[in-house]
Design a protein around this nucleic acid. Structure first.
Length: 475
RNA sequence: GGUCCCUUCGUCUAACGGUUAGGACACAAGAUUUUCAUUCUUGAAAUAGGGGUUCGAUUCCCCUAGGGACUACCA
């Protein structure tokens, strides 16, 4: 839409302050490629960007709401509120601080003006509550995703707008800041839908025009009931956080998509398709394509179950879309970590091209290609039993001699022709020999084209491996 | 419990009154192949149930059921 993207930190709950959380949010957005134009670090015309630094404004607006009759002081202690809740519960009802109960509570509506003033003067702690209109009134608003959504004011309660610690609640801070910071679109999770009428009423009470609302569907657990939680990821082995997070207090580590080896493009693409689709059969979208294709009318209303398998698939798609050179660059550090000296870059590029189709993550390339870098230290016993028998060991030693004395061009097709001739000459079974040679070179029954492996390993190494296998597996 | 939102293959979803209900993931079978994968082909798989409205409902309305969210001086 060509607008500005502001990052605002909603840190009005001082009790829940977490060291490093703000930085984590910023780093996560950047990793995803979501660049914001204004925020706490770089500043901008709508600052400050932390609500804790905008504290002064909220009190003024709370005061304005009180003078205009849209809000009131409440002096109830938390003990008194607990008691009211308990009393209601014992009668089988649930307590709601609303038009029906507010006059029996301790607030500037039930108290006289003098009493209220006295409490205020004596520095009694108080909160400011929104005075929900008591007449049954329909609050309707247009949600960009859900269309018309309606609530009745008689079902709504008097929410706290301003806390006794001098900080606003989300409801007040969000409305005030969105107005002051000229926010045009409020796009948030569906869990906020029940708060929409309160927010609409607040905009009206303050005499402001409201932004557009869009309530997005939630991400649900892969199995079972409810929305996706960190526990589901731990249980099923997938991350729920974009970046690894280490809790500064408990030290608990939550894995991240970045650390698991997901490409940010794949992560964003996967997420974009949870609850939205372009209406075409295209599934792989770059950030630019996503920006161009996205529209609210193609966002679904119902929650979307997260599918870890599909997430893997997205990563696979991006992996095979990358150049062999780029992947080789990403794979090289893994080799060093495994204690392997990386081969010449052109060889590594070639190896990568052979295995990229087979994996979803760079980290999986090692399992598919280790035999290019290090001789197998064991032979799959099942394969050995099946393939290393009869005349095979004898033929293998002849093959070793033949490879050793080979003086022609060392490339896959020539070698294949040469070995085929030898097989025919000695009346061997082609498939049987191939499988045995594969066992010798890679240690099992897997891997890309065998003669390509032979070519890449080189004359000396191939001979060494054959002789080693004869030693280990016997003649 | 109350309020609000939602409901198409196992999962993500397409079809904005007329389609043999389409695609993708996962699954199964077959083909290819020197192995394992890849790839290709094929298959199985859905309109929650019941009422309306209509010539005609996946599509519009109502009820039921199921799911989800909220119900804090948290966001």
């Amino acid at each position: 839409h060509g607008g500005s993207f502001l990052l605002r930190i909603e840190d009005t709950d001082q009790a829940r302050y977490v060291e490093g959380a703000e930085n984590y949010i910023i780093e996560s957005l950047r990793w995803c490629g979501l660049e914001f134009d204004e925020g706490p670090e770089q500043g901008g015309p709508h600052g400050p960007y932390r609500q804790s630094e905008r504290k002064d404004q909220y009190q003024a607006y709370a005061g304005q709401l009180i003078s205009s009759g849209h809000a009131y002081y409440a002096f109830d202690t938390s003990d008194e509120l607990d008691k009211a809740r308990k009393d209601a519960e014992s009668e089988g009802r649930s307590f709601s601080y609303d038009a029906g109960t507010r006059l029996s509570m301790k607030n500037s509506l039930s108290l006289s003006e003098d009493q209220t003033q006295q409490l205020l003067d004596s520095n009694a702690s108080y909160v400011v509550r929104f005075k929900m209109p008591e007449l049954s009134k329909l609050v309707e608003d247009e949600d960009m995703i859900r269309g018309k959504v309606s609530f009745n004011t008689t079902d709504l309660d008097d929410k706290v707008l301003f806390k006794k610690d001098g900080m606003p609640t989300y409801h007040l801070a969000n409305v005030v800041d969105d107005h002051l910071m000229e926010i045009t679109h409020v796009i948030r999770g569906e869990e906020w839908l029940p708060s929409m009428p309160l927010h609409v009423l607040l905009y009206r009470a303050l005499g402001w025009s409201k932004p557009l609302f869009a309530h997005l569907p939630l991400i649900l657990k892969p199995q079972g009931k409810g929305k996706l939680s960190k526990r589901d990821g731990d249980k099923m082995g997938f991350p729920v956080f974009p970046l690894e997070w280490i809790d500064p207090v408990s030290g608990e580590i939550s894995p991240g998509y970045r650390e698991e080896g997901y490409f940010p493009e794949a992560f964003v693409n996967m997420l974009a398709f949870l609850g939205w689709n372009p209406g075409t059969e295209q599934e792989i979208f770059s950030m630019d394509e996503l920006i161009r294709a996205f529209s609210f009318d193609r966002v679904n209303k119902s929650g979307a179950r997260f599918d870890p398998e599909k997430a893997r698939w997205f990563n696979h798609q991006y992996l095979i879309g990358k150049s062999d050179e780029e992947l080789a660059g990403l794979f090289e550090p893994e080799l060093i970590e495994k204690g392997v000296k990386p081969p010449a870059i052109e060889n590594l590029v070639r190896i990568v091209s052979l295995v990229k189709e087979r994996v979803s993550f760079v980290s999986e390339m090692w399992d598919q290609s280790f035999f290019f870098f290090t001789a197998p230290d064991s032979y799959d016993p099942k394969v050995a039993k099946k393939r290393w028998k009869g005349e095979v060991p004898e033929f293998m030693s002849q093959l070793a001699v033949s490879f050793d004395s080979y003086g022609g061009g060392w490339d896959a097709s020539e070698l294949k022709a040469k070995v085929s001739d030898l097989i025919q000459e000695k009346e061997q079974n082609f498939g049987g020999v191939m499988n045995a040679l594969r066992l010798v070179l890679v240690g099992g029954s897997f891997g890309p084209d065998l003669f390509t492996i032979v070519e890449i390993l080189g004359q000396k190494e191939v001979v060494t491996r054959i002789n080693k296998a004869i030693d280990v597996l016997g003649k």
